[in-house]
Amino acid sequence: MPIVQIEEVTKTYGKHTAVSNLSLSVPTGSMYGFIGPNGSGKTTTIRMILRIIHPDSGSIEVLGNRSAAAANDELGYLPEERGLYKKLTVRRMLMYYATLKGMSTKPAAIEVSNWLERFELGEWSTKKIETLSKGMSQKVQFIASVIAKPKLLILDEPFSGLDPVNRETIRSSILELRQQGTTVIFSTHDMGVAEKMCDFVFMIFQGEKVLDGPLESIKAQNGADSVHLRWNGSREDLHSIGEIQKVIDLGAYQEIQIKGDAQRVLRQLVDKGSVQLFEIAQPSLNEIFLRIAGPAAKGSAATTSEFAGVTS
């Protein structure tokens, strides 16, 4: 049963359509990555799931409820733009957020202590937020979003601005919550993180869904045309081969996108130079992202049907 069910939702701001006719189904227990360029509609979609804003048309069901109040206590949210009460102590602020989520005082106090100890913030519990470092504040903000043991956790850019140590602390906490049954939706610009952590990926571009489905399936559907190549020929020689659509120089090797028969391309390359590596590979999520939203794609009026991987 999906934990989030979005049906034909549209949201406009004046003349600008932020999200257009979007349908999406997030399975319970999944780790769902929301990707897309800045301003593509990710945050609008997240805010509609949270009922912070309402769609102009269409319907959204969260945890089987259509009303905002019914699901609020079972949702955790880490907004992209972090904000904490600077004048409150760490403990008092977390207690406030926990009780806002419907927790009673005693269990909330226990949870707050546990999370602070786990994130090595125990001795800071009586300190004011304004005395914390940026990394500590981000950890406190993360605790605030998970303190009430949400069934659905929505994280908007959870790793931005974190150093590697704190990034790992939060990453392992997210994975642990997921193991305990929490469904996680997170938006990110870091394709590497999305690729490592997510089972499902949803990509929105210019307000429209352009990718949606299991990560492996998306990669498989986009994967037959990508080749890792190392050879001694010139770039002009590569472009002279008609089947080669795009060349990305990655230093140690080049990633080329081909259209047509790979064996024929290989033969042409051998004719023009010495080939050390020719490996047919699945494209990275980053590559898929760039194909859809990169400079070459912009202005080409991409539509849903042009991209492999849209499953609905």
Binding site: I52, P79, G83, L100
Partner: peptide, 12 residues
């Protein structure tokens, strides 16, 4: 201070 968005994810 961007606290509002967090709060109204919990209450109306």
């Amino acid at each position: 201070q961007k606290i509002s968005e967090f709060l109204i994810s919990s209450i109306t």
